[in-house]
Computed example of a mutant assay.
Amino acid sequence: MDVLSDVVAAIRAGRPHSARRYKYAPWGLKWPDGEDAAFHVILRGSAWLVLPDAKPVALAPGDVVFLAHGQGHGLASGPDVPLGEVRQLPDGTWSGPPEERGAGRPDTVTLCGTYRLDRDRGRRLLAELPDVLHLPAHVGGHRALRAAVELLGMELEEQRPGTDAIVTSLLDTLLLYILRAWCEREHTTGRGRGWAAALADPAVAAALCALHGAPGRAWTVAELGLVAGLSRAAFARRFTALMGEPPLTYLTWWRMTTAGRLLRHDDLSLSQVAGRTGYTSEFAFAKAFKREFGVAPGRYRRAARAS
């Protein structure tokens, strides 16, 4: 079981959006605070990321910026260039000021987009991400991420048959590569806890894989310790230290997250969803689900299908 892929699949809420933009200096765009996570890639030329209460960040070709928390920000040809407002349309796309085309080759080509994420379900992962994740391009670094960016840019430029499906898949791939790069950077710098540290820890990672692979199993801490190759007490201490909560608390969260996904996307009965998520009765499942989501599972399903 690939835990990172599993969690990202569970917290996605809606279709991602992206656009390739050609810029002629001077230019500047400003995105307001919002719910969606945003990303920007500099395909050609350079730009400045303009942040509230922080110094502008110079971006070079190949740089990737990910803003997980929907923070308002600007992107411009220079740190002092006026910024034109960008607003989100009902379909999730963005509308900005008219683009002025210059003569010849554009100074900068960007790839910008957004991800709609379920922040309640994804709080454990998203809370650990910085407001701004800047992944500078460098020789030999994040090669898979660069390849995904190149393919995405090509598809958005050429608009051939199948582009819509390919772009959606590539955007999902890009998000995973961004998060993988963050995990690797956190592990390399030894910063210590949460998802990045847990996935790099063989014992805790083995237990997470087991929980995600069989959320309906009646796991005990001792059984998870055996999977991790540790005593019950040693495993409980290590898991809690890295994940910030005990193993069975995490298991309950993952069961409810799995249940929400099944209710949104599958036609299983409530008793079948209960069984797949470790509950012996529909009543016990409904009680736990309402405690977690604030609504009964049937009502949650109807609301999710109607939206």
Rank of each mutant, 00 (worst) to 15 (best):
M1K: 05
S5C: 12
V7I: 15
V8W: 13
A9Y: 05
R12C: 13
H17I: 04
A19R: 12
R20Q: 05
E35A: 14
E35P: 06
A37Q: 04
F39W: 01
V41W: 01
P52V: 02
A54M: 15
K55R: 02
A60P: 00
F66P: 08
L67E: 09
Q71R: 12
A76G: 08
S77L: 04
V86K: 01
L89Y: 05
G92K: 08
G96E: 02
E99A: 10
G102A: 03
D107S: 02
V109K: 02
T110R: 04
T110Y: 00
G113I: 01
Y115S: 03
R116E: 03
D118H: 04
D118S: 11
G122T: 05
L125N: 03
E128N: 12
L135N: 04
P136G: 13
H142A: 06
L152F: 11
L156T: 11
E157I: 06
R160K: 14
G162F: 03
V167D: 01
L171C: 08
D172Y: 13
L174M: 15
L176M: 12
L179E: 01
E184R: 11
R185G: 05
R191S: 05
A196I: 09
A198L: 03
A206N: 06
P215V: 10
P215D: 07
A218G: 04
W219I: 12
A222N: 11
V227C: 10
S231P: 14
A234I: 09
M243I: 14
G244K: 03
P247N: 12
T249S: 13
W253Y: 04
W254F: 09
A259Y: 01
L268K: 08
L270Y: 00
L270W: 00
Q272D: 13
A274F: 00
G278M: 03
E282A: 15
F293M: 08
A304R: 09
